[in-house]
Structures are given as structure tokens and as C-alpha cells.
Design a protein around this nucleic acid. Structure first.
Length: 415
RNA sequence: GCGGAUGUAGCUCAGUUGGUUAGAGUACUGGAUUGUGAUUCCAGGUGUCGGGGGUUCGAGUCCCCUCAUCCGCCCCA
């Protein structure tokens, strides 16, 4: 039997309904904040990611879903969407002015990685990017929209965790201080951390080994080695978040993996997720656009995994609401034709109603209606047709009443 | 890329140191009820026991390979 490709899956039933609910909510909230949707190709030239993510990263080395196409082009199925959005902005010269650009995307992403629960080779992300504004105010705006979105989905127990990772100019001073701290107690750190201290020192800060976290007690803080502008930026963001009622906490060990990140980095944690509590992450990436040969442009953004979010919704709220208002059941050929005509009229009036086209008799039709979760069955037989009415059975209560045909549309939509 | 575990009906799961012709609940189909469902009663498909190979008189069971899923590590834009 044919099977979906490893790491990919079909979205159907209840999970698909949650995806729809989440996407609809995102679009509604984002639009009222002035964000516009952008869709970029799934395929990008490999350089887009090599130059944005960095050659040394594991993403480039082993996690990219890449191949050579029939024209000999080395292409990648995008592992994330930010680089593609930035590429598009540059290509279409949309960053040529200093005007702000607010964009969001919803789409599939690909990573060629080992399967685990909630981690797929094709997964879905929703993200928002803000280009052209370097202020803490723009970050607060983006974060407020994010929390509006999450709150609208009914997610509680959320915690915003923030830090500043400084700038390329201020980072060396911190790294020197941190290396000295590390070397003074290097025997306490794990093997991975010894590798990290050479390759990507900041990564030592979020090592998951308990011994390393203990050894990090009293470590130098990035926020103590910031340049004056970054320090003011960070302080201002905290003032804004407090004034706007966005609960946050400072996490001096929160870092980002890539060099182009600057200043603000954040994650949102959910107490409902257990140990793997990170729901999403983001931050400021003032260096990325120029990295990709665009005009120097400040940017801030975040992305959230739709698969994990849908799973969280299922866990918190159970099955997605799936209204099946009414099934129209005609009895006999003449009634079947009339039912189709009636349904067309009701559809035109905005009613949600389905027609049973199987012609298998009332008993089976009611069984089907009950199994599929319809609220009502509308029975149209010879007796009803003669009187110009329909028998309406409430499948939950078991009660039945008679509605005149010309009142059906109104009564269906009002109840 | 590294380490560990699990694959039996559509779904949730039993199955004895290898032994007759493979099970339960639920779901499904037909009938008691040809215009009244979800509750009852009866009758029944419930399956190449992931796939391939090997050992054996005999493999759901033991061995090897492979595929899929799950857990941990690495990593996480």
C-alpha cells in the first residue's frame, strides 16, 4: 500500500479543523494590526540559507531537504521562512525606502531530520516579520499582536521570556568575559559544552545538562556587557511591556543560535506543554538583510509551529468545534429532486444544510445523520410535500416538529 | 548522524519455555422494524498477526535484514 513519505503526514479530521481555526484567527488578528500576507516559494537556491543561517550550522550541514533539480540547480525546500521573505523583499526592492513593512506568512517548512513526536520533516509555521523599524516600540507592537493571537486561541499560562544578545560590536567583550568564566571551571562542563565554547559560545548558556546549568551559577550576563544604545533599548522594551500589561521575565541564559541576531531575543513558554515548554521563539535580526546583499534594514520577527500549537489546542480544548447543522433527507425520487432544489434556495440564503443523496431510506439516513453528528434531520416525504412542510427531528433531544418550507431558511439560521 | 523501544482487525489491545483451523471490546454489514437514529436482540467479513529471508516436522513467538512509528541525544533559523 502506498504510504506518505517518511516524516510527512496528512492533515485531516479534527487536527485539520484546529489548523483552520488557528489560521483564521491569525489572519484576522494580523490584518487588524496592519500586517500583510506574503507567500514565498517552497524552493529556494541553497545560497539563501547558506548565507543567512551560516555554513557551520547543523541546519546547513545535515538538516536541509536539498537536491539538484533537472536544470542542475542546487535547491532547498525551505527549512524556515524568514530567509525567503528577506530574499523576496530584496529582490522586489521593497526595502529601498525607509517605510516600515509588516508581513506575515503561513506555510509548510521542511527539515531533513530524525523523527520524533511533534517533529516532522514537513511542518507548518506561522510567522510575522517587521522590517524597517529599529525601535523597542516596534518590538512591543509585534509582541502585543502575538499575545492577542495566542489569547484569542484561549491559551493561558503563557510566559514571555526575554533577553538581549547585544550587537556584533558588543558581543566580543561579553564572549571574552564568558570564556574566562568557563575556563576557570571547565571541568564542571560537559563534552558538548567544550565543543560549543569554541564554535558557538552562547550556546553553552542553554545546555540542558543539569551539571552545566549548576556550573553556570553567577555567569557573566550579556546584559552587563551591552553598549549604551543596546542597554537603553532593552530597558525601554521592558518599560513598554510592563505598561502594556504583557507579563514577561528576564532570562539571562536565553540565546539565539545565529550571528545575525541582535539585541532582543525572546521565547514564549507554555506551562501546559510540560518539560518541552517552548512554544515559539523570535527576536531582532538587524544583520540579516545586509547579509543577503540588501540595504541595511532593521527587522524583528517570530515564528510559531502550527503542529505543536494544534496539538496544544487539542490537549487544552478537546475536539475542535465541528458544527453539522442539518441533514435534509428526501424519501423517494420525486422528493430527492425537490430536496436538491430546496437546498439550493436555502444555500443562497446562507444556510448550512446537507442533502442526503444516497436514497437508502429513512432508517439508514437517520443512522448516518446521528453518526456524523448532525444537530437536526429534515425529513421530506410524500406527506410533507403535499402539505408544503418538512419534519424536523432534533437528533440530540429526540423531539420532532413540523416547519413550513418557507420558514426553514430563517429558522435554521436563527437557532 | 548516535543510542533505546514498539509493530496483531478500521480503532483500543490480549496471545502461555515454539504446538491443532488465531482472540476481546468497539466500530462495520444484514435482519427482528420497507417513515424514525443514538439504547436492546440475533447472525455475520472482522486479519497475507509491518515486509522479506533464515532456523525448525511446525514461527504471531527464536535469529538476521528492511520499513514505519515512538523515546532520548545532537540540533533547532
Amino acid at each position: 500500500m502506498a504510504q506518505s513519505v517518511k516524516g510527512t503526514r496528512d492533515l485531516l479530521g479534527n487536527e485539520m479543523k484546529w489548523f483552520q481555526r488557528i489560521e483564521d484567527t491569525a489572519r484576522r488578528i494580523f490584518h487588524r494590526h496592519g500586517y500583510e500576507e506574503i507567500r514565498t516559494p517552497i524552493l529556494e537556491e541553497i545560497d539563501v540559507f547558506k548565507r543567512s543561517v551560516g555554513e557551520s550550522s547543523d541546519i546547513v550541514n545535515k538538516e536541509m531537504y536539498d537536491f539538484v533539480d533537472k536544470g542542475g540547480r542546487h535547491v532547498v525546500m525551505r527549512p524556515e521562512n524568514t530567509a525567503g521573505v528577506v530574499r523576496a523583499m530584496i529582490q522586489h526592492k521593497l526595502l529601498a525606502t525607509s517605510d516600515p513593512r509588516l508581513l506575515y506568512y503561513i506555510g509548510p517548512q521542511f527539515r531533513y531530520e530524525r523523527m520524533q513526536a511533534g517533529r516532522y520533516r514537513q511542518f507548518w509555521q506561522i510567522g510575522a516579520e517587521s522590517f524597517g523599524v529599529a525601535t523597542p516600540e516596534s518590538e512591543a507592537e509585534s509582541l502585543v499582536m502575538l499575545f492577542d493571537f495566542l489569547n484569542e486561541l484561549g491559551l493561558k499560562h503563557l510566559k514571555l521570556s526575554i533577553n538581549s544578545v547585544g550587537t556584533p560590536e558588543s558581543r566580543p567583550a561579553f564572549q571574552a568575559a564568558f570564556r574566562a568564566f568557563f575556563e576557570a571551571r571547565q571541568e564542571a562542563f560537559c563534552g558538548d559544552c567544550h565543543r560549543r565554547i569554541a564554535q558557538n559560545p552562547l550556546r553553552v548558556l542553554d545546555c540542558k545538562v543539569p551539571g552545566c546549568q549548576t556550573a553556570l551559577e553567577g555567569h557573566p550576563r550579556i546584559t552587563d556587557h551591552l553598549d549604551e544604545a543596546s542597554r537603553a533599548h532593552h530597558a525601554r522594551l521592558k518599560v513598554l511591556l510592563e505598561a502594556l500589561g504583557v507579563p514577561y521575565e528576564e532570562n539571562p541564559r536565553l540565546v539565539r543560535g545565529l550571528d545575525y541576531y541582535t539585541r532582543t531575543a525572546f521565547e514564549v513558554l507554555s506551562a501546559d506543554l510540560g518539560a518541552q515548554s517552548a512554544l515559539l521563539g523570535g527576536g531582532r535580526y538587524d544583520g540579516l538583510v545586509s547579509h543577503l546583499d540588501g540595504p541595511p534594514t532593521p527587522a524583528f520577527g517570530w515564528a510559531i509551529g502550527l503542529d505543536r500549537l494544534a496539538s496544544l489546542m487539542q490537549q487544552l480544548h478537546g475536539d475542535a468545534p465541528a458544527p453539522r447543522p442539518a441533514l435534509l433527507i428526501p424519501l423517494g425520487e420525486a422528493a430527492a429532486l425537490e430536496a436538491m432544489a430546496l437546498a439550493r434556495k436555502w444555500w443562497a440564503e446562507g444556510c448550512a444544510v446537507q442533502v442526503d443523496t444516497r436514497g437508502q431510506g429513512l432508517k439508514k439516513a437517520l443512522q448516518t445523520a446521528n453518526r456524523l453528528g448532525f444537530a437536526r434531520a429534515l425529513i421530506l416525504g410524500d406527506g410533507e410535500r403535499e402539505q408544503g412542510v418538512v419534519a424536523v427531528k432534533d437528533l440530540a433531544a429526540g423531539t420532532q416538529e413540523t416547519w413550513p418550507l418557507d420558514q426553514v431558511a430563517q429558522r435554521l439560521s436563527t437557532v
